[in-house]
Every structure is written in C-alpha cells, then in structure tokens.
Design a protein around this nucleic acid. Structure first.
Lengths: 361, 361
DNA sequence: CTGAAAGCGCTTACAG
DNA sequence: CTGAAAGCGCTTACAG
C-alpha cells in the first residue's frame, strides 16, 4: 500500500518563502484515505466483490468471502468515497435545503425537521442560507445544483420565484412554507388563511372590539391578512389598524411601538409570526402595557420560543414535522399518486395566556 | 448532444405494476446535466481548454478562444460537477460542522457564523446535527468524512471526545466552543472562567449577598462554575445554592422552580446559558417573583433571544463571529503560525436590566 | 496556445 | 460465485 505524496495534491505553501528562514524539511502529507482497492487487496478479492458486499448486491457473494471482506473493511476502517459514488451513480443521496435565515428559530426548527425527515429516507441535507436575499438565493441554488443534490427544498422569500434558469431542468424542486400557488412548482405550506381566521376568531370570541394586525412584508395580499380580515368582517367588527414590518423580533418591536404609542391602539392584535409577537411584547413592556390585560395577542408559527414568553403566547402552530415529511417525500417522488400541485396542511391554534385565556402548556 | 436515457440510471419504478391499470407509456427521464464535453463541442475546443478557462489556468488560453468558451458556458448553463471535481482534486471545498442541536438558537447562530466565515474562504458547509447524542455524533462524523469534507468543526457535547477512530487520520478537525484542553485536538472556545467571573462579579457589585448558580450538565468541574465560585470567594460571600440541569429552556425552568420554590432562594443567580435563563424567568413569573426586583439574573452566551426577554437579560456574550472565523481558519490551516493548542477568545459582559441595571440595548 | 491521455474511486453489465 | 473492464466528469502533466 503506497501512501506516498502525490505532487499534484501535496499541500502547497501559500506563504512566500522567507529567505531569512530555513526552508521546512518535512511537508505534512495527509495519509491517503483507504479505498476499495485496499480492501480488495487485504481480503484477497477483486474490487467488484468489495462492492457486492458493501451493497449486498447486485451479485451474490459466498458467505466466507463476504466475511473476509467485512473483516477487511472493519480493520482498515473503509468508508466508500461519496464523491466517487455520486459521480458513478448520478445520485449524491443529498437533498438541498434553502432557508432565508437559519438563525431565525422558525427556520432552524424547520431545518431540523427536514433533516430528520431526510435521514429517515437515507438522505443527508446540504443546508444553504440565502440571508433573505434573492440574488443569494439563486446563487445558493446554483451551488446546490453543482453539488449534485438529488433534489432541492426551497423556502423562498420571493413571492414568485423565478428559479427555472438556475437549476438543471431535471432537478426536482419543492417550495416549502409557500401558501400560494406557484406555476410549475409543487408547493407545500400551511393553510394560512384558515389559521389566521381561527386565531383572529379566537380574539373575537374573547370579546375584543378592536383587533389590529402586525403583518410581515410579503409580496401580495397575504393569506394571513385575508384570514384576519375575514374574521373581523364576519363578526361585524371594523378593520383594526395594520402595521407592516419585517418578519423579525425587531420588526415586531418597531411595529408595536408604532401601533401602541398613543392610547388609540387596539385592544388586541393578531401578529403574523411569533418572532414579531415577541418584539411587540417588548414594545408593550416598554410602554408599560400589560399582556393580556391591556393588549391581547395571538400570533402565528408555534416556535419553541413562544412557549417561554411571559405570558405564554397563544399561537397558530404550523405542523413543521408534517410539512417537512411532505416536502421530502415530494421532492424524492415518493408520493407519486399525489396529483396536487399545492399541499395545504392544517394549522392548529395552541392556547397560551397572551390572548386572555390562562392555559399553561 | 445525446440526451438518451441510460438504463443504469433511469428512474426505476418502486411501485409494483398494477395489472388493472395500463402500463405507463412514458418513463420520465431526467435530461442529463450539461458537461464540460458539451461546452467543448459547442465552442469547438478540447475539454482541456474548457478547464483552463473555468479556472483561469494552469495553461494560458488565447483571448478569442476563451471568449468562445465563456459564451458556450453561458448559453448551455454549464456548472462543473462538484463530485467529479472532488474526486479528481481530492478536495470537496466543503467543511463539515457538527452541532448538538441546530434548533437551539445559540447553535444556529454559531452555525450561521461558521457558514459565513467558510463562505469568505470559498467553502460550503455541510451541517450535521448530533441531537446531543454521542453515538450520533460519531455517526455524523463518519458520514462527513465519507463525503470528503476538507475539514470538520465539531462542537462536541462530549467532555473528552474520542473521535480518532472515526475519522480519516488526515482529516483536519477543530473543536469549537470547547473551553478546556483536549489532547491531540485544536480547540477554540471562549474564556469561560473569566466570563463567568466577570458576570458574577457584576452581581456582587450590585450588592446581592447570596448568589446561586444554575449550571448545565457538563462532564467535569466546569469553568463557568469555577468563575462563579471564584467571584464569591474573593468577595467573601458564602457559596450560593447550585442546581444542575439541562442546557435548555425547560432545564432552566425546572431549575428555577427548584431553586425558588420556597423563600430560601438566593437574591441573585448566575445561569450558564441564555436558554436556561429564559426558563428561569418563566419559573419566576409563575412563582410571582419579579426580575430584577426579587431575583437578579446574569446569564451566559449572548444569544439574540436574550435581547428580547422582559426585562432584557444581562449576559456574558460569546464572540460568535470571532470564534467562527478562528475555527474555519484553523481547520483550513490558514493560521500556520498559530502554535496554540487551545485558543481562548474573550467574552464580554453585555448589560441589560435583569441584573438590576437599567440599560437598554 | 491547444489537445490527447491518464487517473481520481466507484458501480455494474458482461464474461467466465 | 468471481473478476476484468468500461465509464461517470473532471484536472493537469505532458507532448506538440
């Protein structure tokens, strides 16, 4: 077994040689990883047989031979080179996932759920962060495609993602967390209209007469907004004030300051994400207003963080695990009978104390 | 250009044929991705020249030729196959990152920082979640190694990670967020002893006479614990109560209930992570105790979430970006002059209101 | 300045 | 049941 250093791979020095110093005598060379050929040699078989044993097929192998090979694999610590496998088979067994901001709890929880769902199908996830930027989203998608992922799950920030120019035509792609229909793409998302309707209705049932809306920036008349509005209309309530802001804690904070700065603010508010609601609660805290005594809140997402606000947030929970499994199965083509272009999964209102109930989760 | 379907790659049907249905006539075949050979043909050059243009070397190319190749690349939408590149060059331009729980804000913020630091060096990050489990940590490491990452950054939950049996001997590995010295590995972490000392001293300066500790489960006598204790000793204060618990919001909640259930609880508490502190605050809320009027809190980490608790947490902030850059440069061997086995980066006390100050961030 | 050729590690149809 | 051989897409030393 030759572990010699190959000139084309030897660690090249990036620093210029310093004439005042003695040139280094030893160049650190990484020992080559164990390959299938090493295993074959050790076990005294051909490389084909090693593959047959590793994959338990497609040709049968005599038990004694297989045992020798397995022993060799164990002793040498052999792991098949995934790059070579991907090149040969055309499948990397990796799924790409693009999220806008991994450091937003909702997205990181979704990323974990997708990772678990993919692992259950034997896939690793190559995670890419678009930083909420459309150009970066395209660039990341390009990179995932070059890395030979077998499919991509995109949680796009674009209302009408135009991604066709970026990917290979044959690369399966699914839009996750997308409430609306996008031509040419399968999309999976929560039933946001119904969720917002349920959440706002709950505030109506508490008897609040004025219910505002803190809404994240979205391209179109958003479904959460429609749900909020429909609940008000059906109750015969006037439209409450609307503040539009970023989908972040800070965005919610700024919206809260604006909405409740003077005493004309509404008695209750529906907020389009938990992160924003947390910002609203901080604003109310600074303004000396109590939740829910002065202002009641219902929000949207059901992030873990919403369990630990004081008081606990009443929130419309997105079934993240369900969505993740659906996205993975969809992108892998495992639900071939599913003809739907768009999957809507139901959201569930989870009661806390911010709405005026006093439920403890 | 032949886009024919190759039998060994055609999408095989996983469902058994249903005799009651007509067999499908068309099998969906993924159009083959564009390769370097397609570009060469289109531009009328050899495949070598395509590479020379893509990499701007190592051989010179006539400007007119290069222009033709670039045009071909653009028209065909060519992207080099990363698996083939990795196989050929021995470098995947990917770094592996193992975190215990990606859905814990501290880890997701660290993951984002590492991703950015790696991107600045031209590397993608293959992110792996160990779910806080040692066996999974080893399994994920094995997988990363098989996927030919050029290095691994591990935020291990093991006190004494024994990882040598899992990775290729030549795979560079760095332990991140590790405060203590680990034989044979480079480790990078915050100066936790000093950070805890500063945080606890701050509580001492506020004049609190009894200062408890909520400490996450760690293998040994932890540096945060040592810092807390040293601050008490040097102030001549008695050791406050210690509750040990998980590094989670729930862990903090349970610890808070235990520490403050009766009125013998301390007047102030140093908490080993922001997530735990958030749990403690919830426990105090339920017990009807106010922060900081009844109990003052200083915690550790400096997660974004700590900015939005009510009141805002005073916390010892880990310089996540600095740590991420150091880890990436270390694992890539970019700081060859650095002889240190262990890098300690300084933490900074960030004042909020939970300690009794009234600073607004 | 350009191209033909070798080889990275793997899988699998084919031949024995 | 086993092995020799082709080829996935790429990079680069070598030859022209």
């Amino acid at each position: 077994m030759s572990f010699g250093c190959r000139s084309s791979r030897a660690g090249t020095r990036t620093t210029l040689p310093d004439p005042t110093k003695v040139a280094p005598v030893t160049v650190p060379t990484n020992p080559r990883a164990v390959t299938r050929a090493d295993v074959a040699r050790y076990a005294g078989v051909s490389t084909s047989v090693v593959s047959y044993v590793v994959h338990d097929g497609p040709r049968p192998v005599a038990p004694a031979t297989a045992a020798r090979v397995r022993e060799a694999i164990r002793v040498l610590g052999y792991r098949p080179n995934a790059s070579a496998q991907a090149l040969r088979t055309g499948s990397s067994k990796m799924l790409g996932l693009i999220v806008p901001e991994l450091d937003n709890p909702f997205w990181s929880e979704l990323a974990v759920a997708v990772t678990h769902a993919a692992a259950a199908r034997g896939y690793d996830v190559l995670l890419a962060n678009s930083d909420g930027d459309a150009a970066q989203e395209r660039e990341r998608l390009r990179s995932l495609s070059a890395r030979q992922v077998d499919g991509v799950i995109v949680t796009s920030i674009m209302t009408h993602p135009d991604l066709s120019t970026v990917t290979d035509p044959g690369l399966p792609m699914v839009l996750l967390n997308t409430f609306f229909e996008v031509p040419e793409y399968a999309s999976i998302g929560v039933d946001a209209l119904r969720g917002a309707l349920d959440g706002t209705r709950h505030l109506v049932e508490h008897g609040y007469g004025s219910i505002g809306l803190v809404m994240g920036h979205t391209g179109s008349m958003e479904l959460r907004e429609q749900g909020w509005m429909r609940a008000l209309r059906e109750a015969g309530l006037p439209d409450g004030p609307i503040v539009r802001t970023a989908f972040t804690r800070r965005g919610g904070y700024e919206a809260g300051l604006r909405m409740f700065a003077d005493d004309t603010g509404p008695r209750a508010v529906f907020v389009s994400s938990d992160m924003q609601a947390i910002g609203v609660m901080r604003a109310l805290w600074e303004l000396g207003l109590r939740v829910p005594e002065d202002v009641a809140i219902v929000s949207f997402d059901g992030a873990a963080e919403a369990d630990y606000t004081n008081p606990q947030l009443t929130t419309v929970r997105q079934p993240i695990e369900t969505m993740a499994v659906a996205a993975v199965d969809r992108v892998l083509g495992l639900d071939a009978d599913n003809q739907w272009h768009r999957d809507l999964v139901p959201a569930e209102l989870v009661l806390g104390a911010s709405c005026g109930c006093d439920v403890r989760r």
